[in-house]
């Protein structure tokens, strides 16, 4: 198994047709450069990626399950925030 002394990194890969980097998994590495080469070897072996981001997991601030209701429930009833009352022209992409 990976060295527990090495920090954990989160890996994001942008696929060939993708617009965004998408989280694909995590790995251990001793430094940022090593994390990038490990990510290349572990997560893009099958011809998937064109770009990789790695970031230390400790650098990510995440919402907690305890905050689920105060964070997300209030937006549940605000139907007027969805652009369903408009006709979107056919030639507008990515919506």
């Amino acid at each position: 198994m990976s060295n527990p002394d090495w920090p954990l990194y989160e890996v994001f890969v942008r696929g060939k047709r993708g617009l965004n980097h998408v989280h694909v998994g995590s790995l251990h590495a001793a430094d940022d450069r090593m994390a990038l080469t490990h990510a290349r070897d572990l997560y893009t072996r099958r011809n998937e990626g064109v770009s990789i981001w790695v970031v230390r997991s400790s650098a990510i601030t995440a919402s907690t399950p305890d905050e689920k209701d105060p964070f997300f429930a209030p937006s549940g009833d605000k139907v007027y925030r969805h652009p369903t009352f408009y006709d979107i022209p056919a030639d507008v992409p990515h919506i």
Binding site: V13, R14, G15, G18, V22, R46, N47
Partner: peptide, 26 residues
């Protein structure tokens, strides 16, 4: 494709049936 970086693997290329496990488009 933005939801899954690996979706491109299932793409069918000409003369190259989708063998997901081996990837495609080689």
């Amino acid at each position: 494709d933005d939801d899954n970086a690996y979706l491109g693997l299932a793409e069918v290329h000409e003369g190259d049936e989708a063998h997901w496990a081996f990837g495609t488009g080689f």
